[in-house]
Amino acid sequence: MAGIGGKSGESASSAFAPIRAWLIAPTWLMIGFFLVVPVGTMLVYSFLTKEFRGGVIWEFSLAAYDRFIFDRGLFGDEPPKLELTYITIFARSIVQAAIATALCLIIGFPTAFYIATRPVSTRAIWLFLVTVPYWVNLLVRTVSMKFLVRESGPLNTFLQWTGVISEPLQIINTDFAVQLGLFYSYLPFMVLPIYASVERYDFALSEAAADLYAGKWTILRKVLLPTVKPGIIAGCILVFVPSLGAFLAPDLLGGAKNFMIGSLIEEQFKGNAGNWPFGAAASMILLSMVLIVLLFYARRQSVRAGA
């Protein structure tokens, strides 16, 4: 199959060769307009002077990055110390996103595996069922989650009715509620890529391994997982990256008591603070972190492919 697909692809691409540049142009325009221009603007703004109550003054300044790194006290005139506030906020967001990703993986991998091993005729139904909740707006889903886990909500009522707990569980306005919300928001982003790779997995490989006296765990670890790893990594990236910048779940489920990266940046543009360069700088730092992780991954992949 793959061979035939490859060949027809090749002949098609040579047929289109003369106008290839034109066919690719829309992609480049999209990337140019919707990626390079906004990110470039942000980069420039992060090095400008802030205007009181929003806006920028066109003068070069490192104040935004300085504020991120150095703590000069409440009144800004103490000797500089290392600023922990923003590192704390970034670390909190990273931990939340990592836990949400782990939850998605733990639930998502078996789900994807199960779906991929069903008969071809029923797979579509299972996939359909996974995606049904995602036809509803993210905000609505997050609010419903809030209804479910609140102190007098169905979850607590049920658990108390069964006698598992006597006092209602305090879930709402905790970090756990945020992780739960992120997990629920992004689960399909984990299931779908893993499903795509497990579906292509040739189960004859497992059988071959079993013939060579490999146990179930060995087959899973040494044959299946390495083969579907690209799908797992793609899923993890697709869940981790949006979780990192999420602010709906932290605001609605976590009570907005603590800033996450997303709400910290939002506050710089929409709040009283109105410090656009600092908001841009925080976005650039976040973007750089994500890029470094992705580049590291891409590099490892290419090294492996090369070897």
């Binding site: 009181f52 409440l74 009144f75 800004g76 506030t85 800033f259």
Partner: peptide, 17 residues
């Protein structure tokens, strides 16, 4: 004014960090 407002901003950020 800007001076007081930036202290308020700092207090607010410290409150929500």
């Amino acid at each position: 004014d800007e001076e007081t407002q930036s202290v308020y901003d700092a207090i607010w950020t410290r409150l929500k960090k």
